[in-house]
Simulated scan of single mutants.
Amino acid sequence: MTVIQERPATDARTLISATLRATLASNMQAKFPELSDDQAERGIGQMLAFLAAGAHSDTPLSPSPLVDDFWHAFLLHTQAYQDF
Rank of each mutant, 00 (worst) to 15 (best):
P65V: 03
D68G: 09
A80H: 03
Q39C: 12
Q5D: 13
T10P: 00
A18K: 06
F74R: 12
A9W: 05
L51D: 05
S62Y: 07
R13T: 13
T23L: 02
A40I: 05
Q79A: 08
Q82K: 10
M1P: 10
R13F: 04
D11G: 08
F84W: 12
W71G: 11
T14V: 06
Q82A: 07
A12V: 15
P33V: 03
L35F: 13
P63C: 05
L61H: 02
A40G: 13
E34Y: 06
L66I: 11
F70D: 06
D11M: 08
R7M: 08
F84T: 11
S36W: 01
F50R: 11
V3N: 14
F70E: 02
I16F: 14
A40R: 10
R13Y: 01
D58N: 01
D37Q: 13
H56T: 10
A18F: 06
H56S: 01
S17T: 12
E6P: 00
H77K: 13
D83W: 14
A52P: 00
L35A: 11
Q79N: 11
A25K: 02
A30M: 12
L51N: 00
E6V: 02
S64D: 14
Q82R: 08
S17Q: 10
W71K: 00
A30Q: 06
P33S: 03
K31D: 15
P63I: 02
E34F: 05
A49G: 11
A25E: 07
G45R: 04
S62D: 09
F32A: 12
V3R: 15
L76C: 02
A9F: 11
T78L: 13
D83K: 09
A49R: 03
P63Q: 08
G54A: 05
Q82C: 09
G54E: 09
Q29G: 06
T14K: 11
M28I: 12
I16C: 14
M47D: 08
L20P: 03
Q5I: 13
A80K: 13
L76P: 04
P60W: 03
A52D: 15
R13W: 05
A18P: 04
G54Q: 00
D38H: 04
M28A: 13
G54L: 00
P33A: 06
A49W: 02
L75M: 10
H72V: 15
D38R: 06
L15S: 15
T19K: 07
S57L: 05
A12N: 12
T2M: 03
Y81T: 14
P33T: 15
A9P: 09
L24H: 04
L61I: 06
F32Y: 12
A52R: 05
N27Y: 01
I4E: 10
S17G: 14
T14C: 10
P33I: 07
D58V: 07
H77E: 15
Q46C: 03
E6F: 02
V67Q: 10
H77D: 09
T10S: 05
L48H: 04
A12K: 13
